[in-house]
Nucleic acid binder design. Structure first.
Lengths: 107, 107
DNA sequence: CTCCTGGTTCAATGGTTATTGAACTAAGAC
DNA sequence: GTCTTAGTTCAATAACCATTGAACCAGGAG
């Protein structure tokens, strides 16, 4: 785990990005962020426990998938769409699309 | 790990596919298969040890990414492009493209 | 038949992962 | 100031991961 605040976490390693997005909870977080410019950590309490959320946010941030901004008493999370698109064009969109399809398994 | 021969391993779970392709050795195998209709297990001895290759082939097969066919004394591996494309359109191509970019890191 | 070659199986190992709960901190609300 | 909300940190745990090496097996080659 890296140091707490690392605004310049850049998208570098494909393995890290795919590992980050291979986890269902993290994919759920990312899928939700795709529809919102920003969301507070607290809006994901239905996904996992507080400390577990911190863990998943760290993994996503270290992979360069999200960025975290501190605003008053809240942490605001956002998806790093442009950075991901610049580094691996089409990857995030393909995974988001696949995730939507994957979600249809039990219809 | 599942039973030895499982020709009908189908692409079902996105997590399994992404986990399979998040490992660099396995991505290398898949990238090489993308240029060849079929390849013998033995053509990947430069990627890992024999037993380690068996392990990686199993993980790829269980995720539905490759299929393995026994021909005389050889095992022939092939990429399940159509099955992947049918289930998660564009995903494999995006990951293969990202892998090519990722490979350019040390230029 | 005996000897390779191609590949699997198995147990062991060290490292990593996700998850938990309790203790803690930072900052606004009252 | 006290209380509460939002979130981190830390240690512990169980499960899983990739990798190894040795033993094994199937089938062709000599």
């Amino acid at each position: 785990m890296r140091s707490p605040s690392h605004p310049g976490d850049d998208v570098v390693d494909l393995s890290a990005v795919l590992e980050a997005l291979s986890e269902p909870t993290r994919r759920q977080i990312v899928a939700r962020l795709a529809n919102q410019p920003e969301a507070a950590c607290s809006s994901f309490v239905d996904c996992a426990s507080k400390s577990n959320l911190t863990y998943h946010f760290n993994r996503l941030r270290e992979a360069g998938v999200i960025s975290v901004r501190k605003e008053a008493q809240f942490r605001l999370i956002s998806l790093r769409r442009e950075a991901l698109q610049a580094r691996f064009p089409g990857l995030l969109d393909a995974i988001l699309a696949a995730d939507r399809i994957d979600g249809e398994r039990f219809d």
